[in-house]
Amino acid sequence: MPYALALGLTLLVEVPVYSVALPALGRVSAGRALTAALLVNCLTHPPLWWFLTSGFPSGAPATGTTSAAYPVVLLLSEAAVWLAEALLLRYGLGLRGPLPYALSLTANTASLLLGLLLVP
Rank of each mutant, 00 (worst) to 15 (best):
32 R>M: 07
49 W>Q: 02
44 T>Q: 06
62 A>L: 11
81 V>P: 09
31 G>K: 06
96 R>L: 06
71 P>I: 06
83 L>F: 13
98 P>N: 11
33 A>M: 11
75 L>G: 05
76 L>P: 11
62 A>I: 05
39 L>V: 10
76 L>G: 03
42 C>K: 06
63 T>H: 15
86 A>W: 02
48 L>S: 03
47 P>T: 02
65 T>R: 13
43 L>R: 03
87 L>P: 06
62 A>Y: 00
98 P>S: 11
33 A>T: 15
33 A>N: 12
58 S>Q: 14
65 T>D: 14
80 A>D: 06
45 H>G: 03
58 S>G: 14
34 L>N: 06
57 P>H: 15
47 P>R: 00
74 L>H: 11
58 S>H: 08
68 A>V: 11
32 R>V: 11
84 A>N: 07
82 W>K: 08
39 L>S: 01
67 S>R: 15
41 N>Y: 12
84 A>H: 03
81 V>C: 08
94 G>E: 04
40 V>N: 08
90 R>E: 01
37 A>R: 10
60 A>T: 08
31 G>I: 06
96 R>N: 05
77 S>F: 01
34 L>C: 02
77 S>V: 08
90 R>Y: 00
67 S>D: 15
81 V>T: 12
80 A>R: 06
92 G>L: 03
86 A>N: 05
60 A>D: 15
61 P>V: 07
85 E>P: 05
86 A>F: 02
45 H>E: 14
48 L>T: 00
81 V>E: 00
30 A>W: 12
92 G>H: 00
48 L>D: 07
36 A>H: 01
81 V>W: 00
68 A>S: 14
32 R>F: 06
67 S>W: 13
49 W>S: 07
76 L>D: 10
80 A>Q: 03
87 L>S: 01
70 Y>H: 14
64 G>Y: 06
88 L>A: 09
41 N>M: 12
40 V>T: 10
36 A>E: 02
61 P>R: 13
60 A>Y: 09
76 L>W: 06
53 T>C: 02
60 A>M: 11
88 L>N: 01
72 V>F: 11
80 A>V: 13
30 A>I: 13
66 T>I: 15
48 L>P: 02
38 L>Y: 07
